[in-house]
């Protein structure tokens, strides 16, 4: 039984605020932290504090960083003529894990979802346009989700960038590599057929 109002209760309440953590999971995590080396718990607390205090959006691309510029924007070897527009900072991580893109990113901070109150003014679209207007950008790759809202966000961004002279592209879609046609759904096949390329 956890004492009501005590520090343990406080920890449980904080843990249950995390996504996917209910009261039982919170209790399990709390007991795990206390049962082993207490230094692990202190290290976790320090890491959480450091993240909360130091992490902020990159001045240029809005990726998360603990410096003025994120590592990608600060890297002189990256191609500044290519900007890959993504919805969230975690999307940057996905592309970086793939390791094939050598340009820069721009994090919108979400997607255009007016039904949920997410209008264009809440995204960093105006900063994207400013970046393009500053010059040096040859291509903007719109890498928003392949959903109606993601496509709508891409369409909105493409309309904003029209007239800037920059090439605007959208990520390809269709069959996932390594899968089989048998497992593909109708939409994947339709997308793959529509986006086929010369062999």
């Amino acid at each position: 039984m956890v004492e009501s109002g005590g520090v343990m209760q406080e920890l449980l309440e904080e843990l249950t605020k995390l996504p996917g953590i209910g009261p039982k999971s919170a209790e399990r995590i709390a007991h795990f932290l206390l049962s082993g080396d207490r230094q692990n718990a202190v290290a976790l607390a320090d890491a959480l504090r450091a993240v909360a205090e130091k992490i902020r959006p990159c001045r240029e691309c809005f990726n998360l960083t603990d410096r003025e510029l994120c590592p990608v924007c600060a890297d002189p070897r990256r191609d500044g003529g290519l900007i890959c527009v993504v919805e969230m900072p975690r999307d940057v991580n996905s592309f970086e894990r793939a390791g094939t893109f050598r340009g820069l990113y721009h994090v919108l901070g979400g997607k255009l979802a007016p039904l949920d109150g997410m209008g264009p003014d809440r995204l960093t679209l105006n900063v994207l346009v400013e970046r393009v207007r500053r010059g040096g950008v040859k291509e903007v790759i719109l890498a928003t989700s392949p959903t109606l809202e993601g496509d709508g966000t891409a369409l909105f961004a493409a309309n904003l960038l029209e007239g800037t002279g920059v090439t605007v592209t959208r990520l390809a879609r269709g069959l996932p590599s390594g899968s089989s046609l048998e497992l593909a759904n109708a939409q994947m096949l339709a997308d793959a057929m529509e986006g086929r390329r010369r062999f």
Binding site: D121, L125, V132, F156, N159, L160, G163, T164
Partner: peptide, 11 residues
């Protein structure tokens, strides 16, 4: 207006 459209009226 400079190149590109305004956020309020993108089309």
């Amino acid at each position: 207006e400079p190149a590109g459209r305004s956020l309020a009226h993108p089309f």
